[in-house]
Amino acid sequence: MSRRNIKEEIIEDLYSEALVLADDARAAFDLRFREDAGSSDDLTRVALSIEGLRTTTRLMHVLAWLLNQRAFLAGELSEQQLERCGTLPDESEADADNLARLEPETCALIEESVRLYARVARLHRDPHTNSATDTSVASLQGRIAQAFAAG
């Protein structure tokens, strides 16, 4: 499998994972449907709102970055457009005091979003991920391989 295909697989897998996690986060932080929302104290509801906003923002940044990568790999964005629009903003870390007020399942969901962000951030820092050079080199290698196979 070529490097480009591996990159596409990684991007697609991360994108699917991010979509599922975003849906889980929406369900976890939607106060309208939480059974314990009325019985929670004000500080717990505020902590849930703050960490919900941080988590969903983190996931939306991840999804935006992954969508830009998918568009670039599909040829829908140029390298210059990707450089201009494809940056991953710095992460807003969870607050330990807020986490102490939340249920373990909610904290696990937040931690999962942090781990996903860290994985995507590693890809973002990789100079080969955001470059058309990979594609050009792979294309040239393919043409060389075809030339020697035909001869």
Score class of each variant (00 low, 15 high):
residue 14 L to V: 02
residue 15 Y to W: 09
residue 15 Y to T: 08
residue 15 Y to R: 14
residue 16 S to M: 09
residue 17 E to Y: 04
residue 17 E to A: 12
residue 18 A to E: 00
residue 19 L to S: 06
residue 20 V to D: 13
residue 20 V to L: 14
residue 20 V to M: 10
residue 21 L to A: 01
residue 21 L to D: 03
residue 23 D to E: 15
residue 23 D to T: 13
residue 23 D to P: 02
residue 23 D to Y: 10
residue 24 D to E: 13
residue 25 A to V: 07
residue 25 A to F: 09
residue 25 A to G: 09
residue 26 R to L: 13
residue 28 A to T: 14
residue 30 D to C: 01
residue 30 D to S: 01
residue 31 L to A: 15
residue 31 L to D: 13
residue 31 L to Q: 09
residue 32 R to D: 13
residue 33 F to V: 13
residue 36 D to V: 11
residue 36 D to P: 01
residue 36 D to N: 08
residue 38 G to N: 11
residue 39 S to P: 02
residue 39 S to L: 08
residue 39 S to W: 09
residue 41 D to R: 07
residue 41 D to E: 11
residue 42 D to I: 14
residue 43 L to Q: 14
residue 44 T to K: 11
residue 46 V to N: 10
residue 46 V to F: 12
residue 48 L to V: 07
residue 50 I to C: 05
residue 51 E to A: 03
residue 52 G to F: 04
residue 53 L to M: 13
residue 54 R to P: 02
residue 57 T to F: 03
residue 60 M to S: 15
residue 60 M to I: 04
residue 61 H to T: 04
residue 62 V to C: 04
residue 63 L to C: 07
residue 64 A to R: 14
residue 64 A to H: 13
residue 65 W to H: 10
residue 66 L to V: 05
residue 66 L to W: 02
residue 67 L to T: 13
residue 68 N to K: 11
residue 69 Q to K: 09
residue 70 R to Q: 11
residue 70 R to E: 02
residue 72 F to V: 01
residue 72 F to S: 06
residue 72 F to M: 03
residue 73 L to P: 05
residue 73 L to D: 08
residue 74 A to L: 10
residue 76 E to D: 15
residue 76 E to R: 14
residue 77 L to A: 01
residue 79 E to D: 09
residue 80 Q to S: 14
residue 82 L to K: 08
residue 83 E to F: 08
residue 84 R to D: 12
residue 84 R to A: 15
residue 85 C to A: 13
residue 85 C to D: 14
residue 88 L to W: 01
residue 88 L to F: 00
residue 88 L to H: 04
residue 90 D to M: 02
residue 90 D to V: 06
residue 91 E to I: 14
residue 93 E to L: 10
residue 94 A to T: 06
residue 95 D to K: 08
residue 95 D to W: 12
residue 96 A to F: 08
residue 97 D to H: 09
residue 98 N to T: 08
residue 99 L to G: 03
residue 100 A to I: 03
residue 101 R to A: 10
residue 101 R to K: 15
residue 104 P to D: 06
residue 106 T to M: 10
residue 107 C to M: 08
residue 108 A to Y: 04
residue 109 L to R: 01
residue 109 L to A: 04
residue 112 E to Y: 00
residue 113 S to Y: 00
residue 115 R to M: 00
residue 115 R to P: 00
residue 117 Y to Q: 04
residue 117 Y to D: 02
residue 119 R to C: 03
residue 119 R to N: 07
residue 119 R to Y: 00
residue 121 A to H: 03
residue 121 A to R: 08
residue 123 L to Y: 01
residue 124 H to V: 00
residue 124 H to L: 02
residue 124 H to N: 12
residue 125 R to F: 02
residue 125 R to H: 09
residue 125 R to G: 05
residue 126 D to N: 14
residue 126 D to F: 03
residue 126 D to V: 04
residue 127 P to W: 10
residue 127 P to R: 10
residue 128 H to W: 14
residue 128 H to E: 14
residue 129 T to K: 00
residue 129 T to G: 00
residue 129 T to I: 07
residue 132 A to G: 15
residue 134 D to N: 11
residue 134 D to F: 02
residue 137 V to R: 11
residue 138 A to P: 00
residue 138 A to D: 15
residue 140 L to S: 12
residue 142 G to L: 06
residue 143 R to P: 00
residue 145 A to N: 11
residue 146 Q to D: 15
residue 150 A to P: 05
residue 150 A to W: 02
residue 151 G to I: 13
residue 151 G to C: 05
